[in-house]
Each structure stands twice: as structure tokens, then as C-alpha cells.
């Protein structure tokens, strides 16, 4: 297990932080998922398969058990001070805290696009989506972002239509495009 190695890694990374108890959230998620899989599997019947032959239930039960077991093992690991190796990346600043506001706005922008894409159409909705995301992620001008997005969404619309034969929703621009 990582219990021996993780504290060492943590010690070299930052001046001794305390146990990262937010990781217990992952345990809760695993437990909940395990419970859901278990509950769902319990409602299954043998189905079309003869009795005595493996039906649809054993594998989900194993998965549910695995989820619960890893949840417990992870909880033990976390309480003993273990922590995951947070993923590094070119544009990630690991010393910064989570920027919840930015994430929240980003999720809202995403949701707006999902709700609007069939009403306004791909071209309009995705252009605004691109511009708004770029703005949320630190872009300077919203309008410029939308302009770039409009070029992208027009190109992809016609590419999908003519080359791939898939028609993305035209929405308000129906007839214009």
C-alpha cells in the first residue's frame, strides 16, 4: 500500500501539511456507489438465463463489494496520513487552492450550453459557449472569444454536415445556414 510512501512524498512536496481529510469524500462516494450497485442488483431476476448458469447478478455484486472494500481501505489510508499524488500539469499550480468560484461559473456556462444548444442551434450556442468559457478561464475580451467561437462553430457545423453527414441542430439560424 501507499501508506509508507505517501507521507514521504508529501513531506518533500510541501512543509508538512496535516492529513487531507477531504479525501474521505472519495470514500463516501465509493460507499454510495457500492450501495447503489448493490441495491440495483438485488432487484434483478435471473432473467432469460436458466437457473444454475451465471446470471446478471454475480458480477455486480463483486463490483459492489470491491467498491465498499476500497472505500474502507482508502479511509484507513487517509486516516493514517496517506494522500494521493495530485496530478501535475503544465498549466496547473498545485500550490493554489481550489478556485470554486471559477469552477462554479464554468459549470453554469456548460449547463447553459446544454440547455440552449437545441433551441438556439449549435452555431450560436457553441460560439457563446466558447467565448464565455475563454472569458471565465481568464481571457481578456468576451466579444473576441465569441468571435473566435463563431468561426469554430461555423466550421464544425459545415464540416459535420458536408463531410460526416451529421446535421447539428441549426436552431435559430435554420434556413440561414
Amino acid at each position: 500500500m501507499s501508506a509508507t510512501a505517501a507521507p514521504r512524498a508529501a513531506a518533500t512536496r510541501a512543509p508538512r501539511r496535516r492529513r487531507d481529510l477531504s479525501q474521505l469524500g472519495v470514500c463516501v462516494l465509493l460507499l454510495a456507489l457500492g450501495a447503489v450497485v448493490f441495491a440495483d442488483t438485488a432487484t434483478l431476476s435471473q432473467g432469460l438465463v436458466d437457473e444454475g448458469v451465471v446470471g446478471p447478478r454475480p458480477v455486480p455484486y463483486v463490483v459492489a463489494a470491491g467498491l465498499v472494500l476500497t472505500a474502507v481501505a482508502l479511509a484507513v489510508d487517509v486516516l493514517r496520513g496517506g494522500r494521493g499524488q495530485v496530478e501535475d500539469g503544465e498549466d496547473v499550480d498545485l500550490s493554489a487552492g481550489t478556485d470554486w468560484a471559477r469552477l462554479g461559473v464554468l459549470a453554469l456556462v456548460f449547463a447553459a450550453n446544454v440547455l440552449l444548444v437545441e433551441r438556439l442551434g449549435w452555431v450560436v450556442s457553441a460560439a457563446v459557449f466558447f467565448g464565455a468559457t475563454a472569458k471565465v478561464l481568464g481571457g481578456r475580451s468576451l466579444l473576441r472569444g465569441i468571435a473566435v467561437g463563431a468561426v469554430l462553430s461555423l466550421l464544425t457545423f459545415y464540416f459535420f454536415w458536408t463531410v460526416l453527414g451529421i446535421q447539428l441542430p441549426p436552431g435559430v439560424l435554420d434556413g440561414v445556414l
Binding site: E87, G89, E90, D91, V92, D93, L94, A96, G97, T98, D99, W100, R102, L103, L106, V136, L137, G138
Partner: peptide
């Protein structure tokens, strides 16, 4: 999302 949550300034 991960990058958005901790953007390098």
C-alpha cells in the same frame, strides 16, 4: 476543469 480550478497565474 482541473486546470480551471487551479490555474497557473
Amino acid at each position: 476543469l482541473w486546470v480551471a480550478s487551479r490555474m497557473r497565474r
